[in-house]
Design a protein around this nucleic acid. Structure first.
Length: 553
RNA sequence: GCGCCUGUAGCUCAGUUGGAUAGAGCAACGGACUUCUAAUCCGUAGGUCAGAGGUUCGAAUCCUCUCAGGCGUGCCA
C-alpha cells in the first residue's frame, strides 16, 4: 500500500516538474509515512517541506500544487489535505484497503515477500562459535538474530546463504586437547597439571570419561603429543555434534559449514598474504609481518605473522573474507558478539584491501544477554566455565519463548532475559499473547467449519468490511510487507517481534468488540475472511521468527 | 588517555534514517464474563527523551561539550 502512495506522489511531482512548476529533483529525499495521529489520515508525505528551499516557494504553496494533482486520484484517495507546516495527508479509499485481503488470500504464505533485494547475493555468517565448548546464551541470541535475518532477507528478494565458520585449528584447539587429556589422566590418578587458561567446564570431564569408554587406559601409553591429538580431535567432533544438535533444536539452519583449516589446505591463507604483499599493503617490522590497515582508516597497523612465525587470528580471517568475496556475495554480513567491536575497522580495512567497497561489509554486533530469575540476576562467568548454556535455556523455557525473547530487542541493546516471564502462560508473556491470538482464530474457524462455513473471499460482500474496526485491523495487515522491507534494509529483525505484538493486540481488540460468527447476515463470511487473513499473517511472521503457530492452546 | 555502544514513563524497551500533541508491553489504579478460548478487552494515571549549548521552518534523532553505565584499546581467539 505504501508503495502505491509513493508512486502516486512521485508521479504527481514529476508531472509538476514537467510543467515547470517545480524544479527537477524535488522528490528526492522525501518520504511517505504513517502519521502517529490517526486524525491526520492513513499516510502523509513531507515532500512540500523538503523541496521548499529549492523551489523557492513556501511549503504550503507546494503542498497545494501537489494536492491539486493528487485530488484527481479519486481511485486512491477519499481525501487529501494539507496540515501543519506543510504535510500532505492522505485518506485511502476503503475499497483499496479491502483489496489487501485479496492479496493475503491469493499469496498465502508468500504474503509479505517483495523484490526489494533484486536477487542480490548475500551471506550471513553467524554463531561461528569455536568447537571448544557448548553454545551459551550469548550464542543463542546471535543464532536467533542471524537465522531470522536470513529468513527475512529471503522474503525481501535476496539470495541468501547462512554460514557457520568453524575455528577448527589454532591454539584454542590444542588447549582443548590438553584440557581433555588432563581430565582423562585424572580419572586414572595420573593427573598432569591442568593447563593455564584451560577449559574448565564440566563437559570436558564428560568427554574425558567418554574417551575412557572408547580407549580404556590406552591413551596413557601414547606419547604426549599423540595423546593430545587424539583428545583434541575427539573433543572437537563431539562438541561440534552437540552444537549442531542444539541448533537444530533451536530451529536454526545453516546452508554451509566452513572450516578454517580448509583455508590452509587450499593455500588460501598464503595466497592472501601474497596478495597483500604485492599490493604493497604489508611490511616486515620487529620480526613480524604487518598489514597497513591504517591506510583504510584503522587506528594502527595490525600484525599478520607474529615474531615466533605463527599467524594471528586475523590472517586466516582475511583469507576467509577474501573467499566470501570470491564466491560472489555483494553483501557480507558478519554477526559478532559486541565485545569484538574493536575488530570491525580492521576487517573493513581488509575488505577494502581486497578491492571491495567497504559498504559491502556489515558487522552486526550482538550485545550481552543477562538472565534474571526470581527478579534477581543469574551470575555467569565464562572464565570459570559457569556459563548458562543454550541447551539449559531451551530445556527451561522452550524454543518458541527463547527465540522471541532473543529477538525482542535491538541487537545493540543489552537484553535482560527474564526466565520466569518466558515461562508464564499469561498476557504478560508476549510469546503467549501472540500465539494465543493465532489459536483463538483457529478456534473460530473450527466453529465455523462445524456450521459448514469456510472463509471464501469470492463470497464476501465487501462493503460489510468498511467499519472502523475492520479497517483498523486491515491497516495493520497492510503494513506487514513494509515492515519486512525495513527489517531487511536496516538489518533489524527485532521489528518483526514488535509487529507481531501489534497485530495480536489489534486482533484481540477486534475479537472483544466484534462477534465473528453471528447467526444472521452475510457479515459472518466477511469477518471469517478477515480473521483468516490475520491468521495467515500471524503464521507468516511467526515462521520468520522460527516460532510455532499453535492451532489450539 | 583514546575509541565504540548505551542512557526515552516505576520496570523492560520501540521510535520507519530530521517531522505534527514522544509510543508499546508489563507493573499500578478503576471497570467489562448469559459471549466464537476472560490465557482477553476497555479506561485512568504515568515524561525536563541523562544534562548544557549549537545547526533549521522543525531535533529523542545531526554536531560539540559534560555526566553515568557497559565494552574495546593483544604479536589472544
Amino acid at each position: 500500500m505504501k508503495d502505491t502512495i509513493e508512486r502516486a506522489v512521485t508521479s504527481a511531482v514529476e508531472d509538476l516538474t514537467k510543467r515547470g512548476l517545480l524544479p527537477p529533483g524535488s522528490g528526492d529525499a522525501a518520504t511517505v509515512s504513517i502519521p502517529q495521529n490517526k486524525e491526520f489520515g492513513d499516510y502523509a508525505t513531507n515532500i512540500a517541506m523538503i523541496s521548499a528551499s529549492r523551489a523557492k516557494k513556501s511549503p504550503r504553496e507546494i503542498a497545494s500544487l501537489i494536492r491539486g494533482e493528487l485530488e484527481q486520484r479519486n481511485d486512491l484517495f477519499s481525501e487529501v489535505t494539507i496540515a501543519g507546516p506543510g504535510f500532505i495527508n492522505f485518506t485511502v479509499r476503503p475499497e483499496l484497503w479491502i483489496k489487501v485481503l485479496d492479496d493475503i488470500h491469493e499469496q498465502g504464505t508468500a504474503y509479505g515477500c517483495s523484490a526489494y533485494g533484486q536477487g542480490r547475493k548475500v551471506q550471513v555468517e553467524f554463531v561461528s562459535a569455536n568447537p571448544t565448548g557448548p553454545l551459551h546464551i550469548g550464542h543463542g541470541r546471535g543464532a536467533a538474530v542471524g537465522d531470522t535475518l536470513v529468513r527475512i532477507m529471503k522474503t525481501a528478494g535476496y539470495e541468501v546463504q547462512a554460514e557457520y565458520y568453524i575455528n577448527d585449528i589454532g591454539n584454542q584447539m590444542n588447549l582443548l586437547g590438553l584440557s581433555v587429556l588432563s581430565r582423562y589422566r585424572e580419572l586414572f590418578d595420573q593427573g598432569i597439571s591442568f593447563p593455564e587458561n584451560g577449559y574448565q567446564g564440566e563437559y570436558i570431564r564428560t568427554i574425558a570419561s567418554e574417551l575412557t569408554r572408547i580407549h580404556g587406559e590406552g591413551l596413557l601409553a601414547l606419547d604426549h603429543h599423540e595423546a593430545v591429538h587424539v583428545c583434541r580431535e575427539y573433543a572437537a567432533r563431539s562438541i561440534l555434534e552437540g552444537i549442531k544438535d542444539d541448533l537444530i533444536r533451536f530451529e536454526v539452519h545453516f546452508d554451509n559449514w566452513f572450516s578454517e583449516s580448509s583455508l590452509y589446505d587450499q593455500h588460501k591463507v598464503d595466497e592472501t598474504l601474497e596478495h597483500l604483499k604485492t599490493s604493497g599493503l604489508s611490511y616486515e617490522n620487529d620480526g613480524a609481518l604487518w598489514f597497513r590497515t591504517t591506510r583504510f582508516g584503522d587506528e594502527k597497523d595490525r600484525v599478520l605473522r607474529k615474531q615466533d612465525g605463527s599467524l594471528t587470528y586475523f590472517a586466516p580471517d582475511i583469507a576467509y573474507h577474501r573467499d566470501k568475496l570470491e564466491r560472489g556475495f555483494t553483501k557480507i554480513i558478519d554477526i559478532w558478539g559486541a565485545d569484538h567491536h574493536g575488530y570491525v575497522p580492521r576487517m573493513r580495512a581488509a575488505i577494502q584491501a581486497l578491492d571491495s567497497e567497504p559498504e559491502s561489509f556489515h558487522a552486526l554486533l550482538i550485545q550481552l544477554v543477562s538472565l534474571v530469575r526470581d527478579g534477581k540476576p543469574v551470575s555467569m562467568s565464562t572464565r570459570s566455565g559457569e556459563f548458562v548454556t543454550l541447551r539449559e535455556i531451551l530445556d527451561e523455557v522452550g524454543t518458541d519463548a527463547a527465540r522471541y525473547f532473543f529477538l525482542m530487542r535491538r541487537c545493540d541493546s543489552h537484553l535482560v532475559f527474564d526466565l520466569d516471564l518466558a515461562k508464564k502462560k499469561t498476557e504478560e508473556n508476549p510469546v503467549f499473547y501472540i500465539q494465543y491470538a493465532h489459536a483463538r482464530i483457529c478456534s473460530i474457524l473450527r466453529n465455523a467449519a462445524e456450521l459448514g462455513l469456510a472463509p471464501d473471499m469470492s463470497q464476501v460482500d465487501r462493503t460489510l468490511l468498511e467499519q472502523d474496526d475492520d479497517l483498523d485491523l486491515i491497516k495493520v495487515l497492510a503494513t506487514y510487507p513494509d515492515v519486512l522491507v525495513s527489517c531487511a534494509a536496516d538489518l533489524e529483525p527485532h521489528r518483526v517481534a514488535f509487529y507481531l505484538l501489534e497485530l495480536a493486540t489489534e486482533f484481540h481488540r477486534f475479537y472483544n468488540k466484534n462477534r465473528v460468527i453471528s447467526e444472521s447476515g452475510p457479515g459472518t463470511m466477511a469477518r471469517l475472511v478477515l480473521v483468516d487473513a490475520v491468521r495467515q499473517v500471524l503464521v507468516n511472521a511467526l515462521a520468520l521468527m522460527g516460532i510455532v503457530a499453535p492451532e489450539s492452546m
